[in-house]
Amino acid sequence: MHPNMILLEWQQEPSSGLLQELLFLKKNVKEHFNGISQITQGYCSLLIQWKDAITNLADIKNKLIFLYWSLDFTSIPEKSKHWNLPVCYDKSFAIDLELLSSKIKLSKDAVISIHTQSIYKVYFIGFLPGFLYLEGLNSRLFFPRKESPRMDTPKGAVAIGGKQTGIYPNQSPGGWNIIGNTPIPLFDPNKKNPCFAVPGDTVSFYPITIEEHQLILTNGNPLSYLKEKK
C-alpha cells in the first residue's frame, strides 16, 4: 500500500469481540514497536504507519504475528460507559427521512422508533473529528449511502449509511442519509478529552422536539443534556 505502512485486516464481520481484539492489539503494538507514527482503526482493520519506510518487512511481520498469538484476548477488562443523546427527527432536519422511509417501506414514525430503541456500540472515531462509528443499526433501517456525497451535511446531522448510523460532528461533505439532528457537540478541541465517548462505549438516542433542540443549542452547557448511564 505504501512503504511506511502495514495494513492488518480481519476477514470477518464486525463484532464486539473483534472490537476488543483490535483495541487490545493496537495498545500492545504501540508498546512493542518503535518508530510508529500512528495506528488508525476500522471495523475490521488496523493501519500501522511508521515514521520512515519499512526496511525489514519480514522481521516486523514475524514480530506482529508473534505478538498477536502471545496476547490473551480473553483477559481484556470490560469498562465502558453508556451515553444517551437527544435527537430531533423533525422534517426541517431530517431531509432524507422521507426518501428513506418510502424506500424501506416503513413509516417515518417507525423509522424513528426503531432508531431510538437500539443500543449502539462505538467501534472507532474516524472520518471527522468526533465522528463516532456506531454498530448495532437494526437491519430494517439498512439503506445505501448516496451515489455521490452531499457537499454540506450540517453539524449534528444523525444519518444512516449502509449498515451504519452516525452523527456528523461538524458541517462537512457526506454520503449518508440524514434522518435527524443532535444539538450535543461531539467534539471540543479545547477540552482535555475532546470527545466524550471512546471506542467500546455504548450510545442510544432519545427523540426531542424542535423547540427542545433549540433550547439545548442555546444552553450554555449542552453536555448536561447528555444522559450518561453506567
Partner: peptide
C-alpha cells in the same frame, strides 16, 4: 461493493459507487 469503514489517509485513492 461498499466496504466496512476502514482507515484512509492523504494520498488514498477512493472509487465511489458512481465511478468517481
Amino acid at each position: 461493493p461498499e466496504i466496512w469503514s476502514c482507515p484512509s489517509l492523504p494520498g488514498t485513492v477512493q472509487l465511489t459507487p458512481d465511478g468517481t
